[in-house]
């Protein structure tokens, strides 16, 4: 068990350090991707004709192997984290742009009409109505992007040990220590699961307005909880 966490010194990090590095290399690109996707998605919502070509471009970008991108980038950014993170940010667009566009488009027509009629200008409408209602879809996109980014970081080992936990795979080979490979795989998977769970939790916290099965806020007696759809109807009739 000790050998499991006993990492070769060429990694320059202990286990926790590697985890921190891995998370940073995986999640910063997703954050950058999100910041990039928001305006792109808004343009696609505004100008419908733009959506198909934008989707096409993000898909093509996603299809470019990361190794090819590294080769090009290395001339500019060297063997650094940045070289790993740039393609990851670009890849995240393929999930995030459609997630945001679909989320924003899912806002009911009548909700938008009501917002306009109440005198909310385009900016307020976007920030106060469309974006909050699109939030569940956006977070769903973030979950996919984050998990795939966490697994993709490992490729960074190909350019001078920039793969964080992925570097363990390389070392497992060099030092003939298969337990390092296990460590890499298991820790990466664990991280993916934890980050995904954190995002689910975030969504639950941010969207108390979403119907949630029988789980209602506050303390309610069994009798109150049971007749879910009937309860408001009964109140209506009682008046």
């Amino acid at each position: 068990m000790n050998r499991f966490f006993d990492l070769p010194s060429d990694l320059q990090h202990d286990w926790l350090g590697l985890i921190g590095l891995h998370l940073r290399e995986a999640l910063l690109p997703v954050l950058a991707g999100l910041l990039l996707s928001l305006p792109i998605a808004q343009l696609c919502v505004r100008f419908r004709w733009l959506y198909a070509p934008v989707l096409g471009v993000t898909t093509i970008l996603y299809a470019i192997p990361s190794l090819a991108v590294f080769v090009v980038l290395i001339d500019y950014t060297g063997q650094t984290e940045l070289t790993v993170m740039i393609p990851l940010a670009v890849y995240s667009l393929v999930v995030l742009v459609p997630a945001i566009v679909d989320g924003v488009r899912s806002v009911p027509q009548e909700t938008l009409a009501a917002a306009t009629a109440m005198g909310l200008g385009p900016v307020r409408r976007y920030l106060q109505v469309q974006l909050p209602i699109a939030l569940p879809a956006i977070i769903a996109g973030l979950r996919v992007a984050a998990v795939s980014s966490i697994s993709l970081v490992s490729v960074g080992m190909l350019i001078g040990n920039q793969g964080a936990l992925g570097n363990l795979l390389n070392d497992a080979n060099i030092y003939h220590r298969p337990e390092l490979a296990w460590n890499s795989v298991l820790t990466t998977a664990g991280l993916a699961i934890l980050v995904d769970a954190a995002l689910v939790l975030l969504r639950l916290l941010l969207t108390p307005w979403m119907p949630r099965g029988t789980r209602r806020r506050g303390s309610r007696t069994a009798a109150e909880v049971r007749p879910e759809p009937a309860a408001p109807a009964a109140e209506e009739a009682a008046r």
């Binding site: 909700t111 109440m118 109505v129 909050p132 939030l135």
Partner: peptide, 23 residues
């Protein structure tokens, strides 16, 4: 101004068009 005009007129539609994310 268009938004001043709109705020001086209440607007009610079918299905209410409520903001689902607000209380």
């Amino acid at each position: 101004p268009v938004n001043t005009l709109r705020r001086s007129m209440g607007y009610v539609i079918q299905n209410a068009g409520l903001f689902q994310h607000r209380t």
